[in-house]
Design a protein around this nucleic acid. Structure first.
Lengths: 204, 204
DNA sequence: ACCTGAACACCGTTCAAGT
DNA sequence: ACCTGAACACCGTTCAAGT
């Protein structure tokens, strides 16, 4: 109804929010800069001011995704209370929930993480920093959790970094397995139980 | 030099082989049907005879990928000899090697697997059958391995299906972590050791 | 500083027509 | 049965020009 001003004002955020929605509802393939611009009521060249190219937009989405995943893992650990196995399980469950609700975004996050490490995302340098920040925060948090388990004797001793890597690989693997329609869709709870039992076996 | 005949003769296989190479060297984004047709010396509409659309080509690539992964896992288990932990480790190592050498293809395989389950690849129905066949062969093989471990008492008793799912999730998670430039790139061996130790702990 | 409009080279997909 | 050539609607990207 109101005349749209020449300057949009929140274009960057609008584009990101719209992109995340499209990602969730239609997948990466269907994500087009021109389409996003249309939905924002702006010319097709306008996004260029905020994202150097399509890859940069995807990189920014991945960075925001990691930041949110880190938040959700933190909240899940907090909500799980003091019991260590419960905290471990909650971390893994947060991964699974994220993957269930934002499958395409999670896929994008992990390909962006590896792509940026191997220099594939040269265009999105700023986003690459944000991405590393989110990833780092997540890594640190899980690392602290692992050390906590070692201190209370509920995890075996040894390099906590190695244990953290293995645990995160398991969480990611389960999350990838348990996406809508996947072979383990209905088995998420069982897998989480098994994973936690495997890690804390004979130490509960 | 020789005049190209009107009928190519091996167009389908040529396209698949060329596509796999492009995938390895340039990633999915760069994979274009028109480009493939050009490299095969054929008109841009010719691939249409063999692949309904781009998704169908990707589906066929994923199906072939699973068939090859199943072969390589079978060969790895065979080559590992009779020792069970060695066989377990060899399976996981085959995943890692595949992911290292064909990162984009492996990514494609696992998104195709989930996408096909949720009906995203409606176009590639034929490929969907091939894909399920490759996936099934791989699942069965790993399932047999798990049962073998249970029979010799080197794996805990319980539903072998659950253990298989967890093990494959771990293998996939490690493979995703250990791609070129990834955070665990130099730590593949350690992760594999840890994963096997976790599974066979106190039972060696 | 932020956005527009036209332009360029490229795509996937379709379809009548050729061999 | 398999392939061609023209055509259509769509992209990402660039750039002079506008506010």
């Amino acid at each position: 109804m109101t005349d749209r001003p020449y300057h949009h004002g929140h274009l960057r955020d609008t584009l990101l929010a719209e992109a995340e929605r499209t990602l969730r509802e239609q997948g990466v393939e269907q994500l087009s800069l021109r389409d996003l611009a249309r939905q924002a009521g702006v010319s097709h060249a306008a996004p260029r001011r905020h994202f150097a190219d399509r890859q940069a937009l995807l990189g920014a989405l991945a960075a925001a995704g990691f930041a949110r995943l880190a938040d959700e893992v933190a909240a899940a650990i907090e909500a799980a209370g003091p019991d260590f196995p419960a905290r471990l399980r909650a971390t893994c469950a947060a991964y699974v929930r994220f993957a269930t609700e934002d499958t395409a975004l999670m896929e994008l996050m992990f390909t962006a993480k590896s792509g940026s490490a191997s220099g594939e995302l040269a265009a999105g340098e700023a986003a690459s920093g944000e991405l590393a920040a989110g990833v780092g925060r997540l890594f640190t948090m899980v690392g602290e959790l692992i050390k906590e388990g070692q201190q209370t004797g509920q995890l075996p001793p040894g390099d906590p970094e190695r244990i953290r890597l293995l645990f995160m690989a398991i969480a990611r693997g389960i999350a990838e397995l348990v996406i809508p329609g996947g072979p383990g869709a209905g088995q998420a709870d069982g897998l989480l139980d098994d994973a936690v039992a495997l890690f804390t076996r004979g130490r509960g």
